[in-house]
Design a protein around this nucleic acid. Structure first.
Lengths: 238, 238
DNA sequence: CGTGGGGTTGATATAGTTCAAACTCTGTGG
DNA sequence: CCACAGAGTTTGAACTATATCAACCCCACG
């Protein structure tokens, strides 16, 4: 890995605030450190626990028969995940940025608490609804038809979720491969599109894993085109 | 519309079982009939209620700045939806098959009930988790890279959700345009792909709005190719 | 009988995949 | 210390699946 092998850039280093990380369930949480590449749970494993990322980042993904990996969600500090009715999960969760700290909430105990304490119950519903909204946004993102729109929407989403201050560069804890699997594109396309955005002056790449968003408008604009070869009039990014 | 303008084919005519339709919340539900094309709620409207489809079908969709419509979810009898934390929804819900019957659960009263009655609280969590799983399956579906895979996965999902008996034709309550917007494809591509599946003998079209799945395996196979023009050796469907 | 929405099919253009190569950075081992 | 390997990233050239544009059919409905 070209940039600090899976180590989380500083902007992400903040621990999730206790409030976001499951009010009232602290007492049944078991917190564990994870290393880069470790799995929090596996595909087709029983869904006994809910989880939340306290530090680091993870991906929720599936590998289908033809070996292609699909990433359904990136999980950042504060995100709660692993909700399921079924006995087995269809997805695996893996750490992509260390040092990572993950809280685990045994499902039956959590459900019992939710039923005993109305506040906790409400909190859990709220978190589940957050998952739903994140997944809906993701569906909208995947529904974009051009690579340009997908990558732009992805950058804006990451900026929003990282709570970045307007012109601070946002940290991407994932590789280009991860982004490609998330957007249902090829690595090459992701790379080319980022380069194009850079040439157009919409973003600036700080190293490979940080992006400074320069022109929010242009990113949000639907008509943004690829423009494979602009006759080199705008200066490229550093 | 070529086939009975938005009228739901019979297989869908069953009312959602009371159990699936929100145990215990019947007393605060207001049930209303809807007609084809009517909106249950609008994009950017406050999210005061949860809903469930009792009869008919609906789509949850967004229209973005460039006028393109994206369908995030198809809603069939028994599906509960409209969950949100935010004040405003990002999505609209519209009836696509009549006669439709929709139950509406005022959010604050429903939340109060959930907090007062543990069983109801658990029921709501379960429904929210169902939403999550449906959206995750959808993300996986959209992550497919070929039109063939998308359409195949869509048909299998519809078959599953309609609870169809193996060789009974499944009813598609939506138009080709809806399917296209759901899969992030063009109508023409959806149509061509269905025709191709038909030529290959994987499915049979019964009219335009019913599909009999003949070869489950072939649909599920990842390697399925488009084969634009097989030299007309297999007989086409009726 | 004409109109319009939905559906299918064909021809062409193009965005994105695929294959290939080179570069950077990190870590490892002589 | 240098050589080397490997993962991640970028760029180029060719190919191909899908979008796009256009024509047509079918049926329901006024």
């Amino acid at each position: 890995m070209s940039e600090s092998a899976g180590r989380m850039p500083e902007r992400q280093e903040t621990l999730a605030t206790p409030m976001r990380a499951f009010v009232g369930l602290e007492r049944i949480a078991s917190v564990a450190p994870y290393r880069f590449g470790e799995s929090i749970y596996f595909q087709d494993q029983p869904a006994d626990c809910w989880y939340s990322i306290l530090r680091g980042a993870a991906r929720e993904c599936a590998v289908n028969e033809d070996g292609r990996r699909q990433i359904v969600d990136f999980l950042l500090p504060g995100d709660v995940f692993g909700f399921s009715n079924g006995e087995a999960r269809g997805l695996a969760a893996e750490i992509i940025a260390e040092p990572a700290l993950v809280a685990c909430y045994p499902r039956h105990r959590a459900e019992a608490l939710a039923e005993a304490d109305a506040t906790i119950g409400r909190g859990i519903r709220k978190l589940a609804f957050e998952s739903i909204e994140r997944l809906q946004r993701r569906a909208l993102l995947l529904g974009c038809n051009s690579a340009m729109q997908k990558v732009s929407a992805f950058l804006l989403e990451m900026a929003m979720r990282c709570g970045s201050i307007s012109h601070e560069p946002i940290a991407l804890p994932m590789t280009r491969y991860d982004i490609a699997d998330y957007l249902a594109l090829r690595v090459e396309t992701v790379s080319r599109t980022l380069s194009a955005l850079c040439r157009q002056g919409a973003i600036a790449l700080v190293g490979t894993r940080r992006v400074r968003i320069i022109d929010h408008r242009r990113l949000a604009a639907p008509g943004t085109k690829f423009t494979r070869l602009p006759p080199a009039q705008q200066q490229c990014c550093a």
